[in-house]
Design a binder for these strands. Structure first.
Lengths: 181, 181
DNA sequence: CCTACCGATCGGTAGG
DNA sequence: CCTACCGATCGGTAGG
C-alpha cells in the first residue's frame, strides 16, 4: 500500500504535538508510516519542511465548510471555536503552540510557518466577527479568544481536566451572542 | 569561582524555557555554567532531576514577600499576577508551560514536578482570593487567571506582541477589584 | 523505496 | 572537578 503524503503529514503532526519539534524524530515518523527513514527524504527535504504542511492541514480542518460571507456569522464563529476546543481537548495538546514554543531560531521556514498559522487562524476569526464588530474590536476579541483556548490546554495537559476549556468556550460563545444587536 | 547550585538551576531554567525539555542539552548547560558535563552529574543525578528545582525556584520568586494571611488580599493578588505577567513577557516563554508540553511520559519525577508547580501556583492564588470569595469561586477565578496569562504568551512568542498579556492582566485586576464588596 | 552509512550529539558513566 | 569514554540516536546523504 502506498504511503500518501497526507498520511506522513498526519503522523508528523501527531509527533510534533506529543513531543515538540526537538523531541520528534524522523526515525519515529518513518516507523509510524511504515517507511525507512531515507525514504521520507524523497518527499520532504528536511524535518523543518514538515512544519508548514502540518499546520496547513490543521487550518484546513479548522475552517472546512465555513462560509466567510454568509450572514450567519454567529453560527460560524461558534463552529470554529468548538472545533478548536474539541481538537485541543481530544488531542490534549495544541500542535501550533508546541511548535511556537519549540521551533529553533535557526529554522526560519518553520518559524514563519508557525507565524502564518496563528495569523491565519486569527484572521479567520476576525473575518467572521467583522459582520458584527468593527475592525479593532474584532481583532481584540479574536486574539483573546485564542488566548483563552490555548491557555486552557494547560489544564488538559497536566491534570487531564477539560473543564477550563469548556468554561472558556462557553464564555466566548456567550460574549459573542451579546454582540448581536 | 565556585559554581553554585542556584547558578546551575537558573541556567537550566533558561535552557528549558528556550528549547523545551528535549531541546535542552546537558552539554549546553555545562558550557553555560563553565563546567564539564560530567561535573554536572556530581550535583544532579540526571537531566530529569533538574526540573523540580527549576520550578521550585520559580515558585519562590513568584510568591516572595507575599503574606497570605494579610487582609490586603487585593494588593497581593495584583502583585502575583503582575509578577507572572512580567516574567512571561520579559522571558518570552513560560518554563512551566514548555515543560508541561514537553516532558516525556517516561520521566515521572519531572511530570509530577510540573503538576506540583501548577497546582501550587493555582493554590497560591486561591489562598489569596479566599479572603473575598468562597472556595469554589476562588478556584474558578484562579484557574482562569492562569489560563489567560499562559495563553497570552502565545502572542509574545510568535509576534513579540505584549498587548494581549497586558490586556489579560488589566482585565483580571479589574475583575478582582469588583470582588471587593 | 531500500541498505548502508556519515559526522555530530545525546544522556550518562568509569576512573581518577 | 577533570579526561576520556560508552552505546544510542540524531538529521541527513550516497548510491543503487
Amino acid at each position: 500500500m502506498k504511503t500518501s503524503l497526507e498520511q506522513i503529514v498526519v503522523e508528523a503532526r501527531e509527533l510534533f504535538r506529543e513531543h515538540g519539534y526537538a523531541g520528534a524524530s524522523m526515525q519515529d515518523l518513518a516507523d509510524r508510516v511504515g517507511l525507512k527513514k531515507a525514504s521520507l527524504y524523497t518527499r520532504f527535504p528536511s524535518k523543518e519542511a514538515l512544519v508548514e504542511p502540518v499546520l496547513a492541514l490543521t487550518l484546513e480542518e479548522t475552517f472546512a465548510d465555513i462560509e466567510g460571507d454568509a450572514d450567519n456569522w454567529l453560527a460560524n464563529y461558534e463552529a470554529v471555536l468548538k472545533r478548536i476546543a474539541a481538537e485541543l481537548t481530544d488531542r490534549t495538546r495544541c500542535v501550533g503552540l508546541h511548535l511556537a514554543y519549540g521551533v529553533p531560531a535557526d529554522a526560519p521556514q518553520a518559524l514563519s510557518a508557525v507565524q502564518h498559522y496563528f495569523a491565519t487562524l486569527r484572521n479567520g476569526l476576525i473575518a467572521i466577527l467583522r459582520h458584527a464588530l468593527n475592525a479593532k474590536r474584532a481583532a481584540t476579541v479574536a486574539t483573546d479568544a485564542l488566548v483563552s483556548l490555548e491557555g486552557a490546554t494547560l489544564w488538559v495537559v497536566i491534570e487531564d481536566d477539560p473543564q477550563p476549556m469548556q468554561r472558556a468556550l462557553k464564555n466566548l460563545i456567550a460574549e459573542a451572542r451579546a454582540f448581536e444587536a
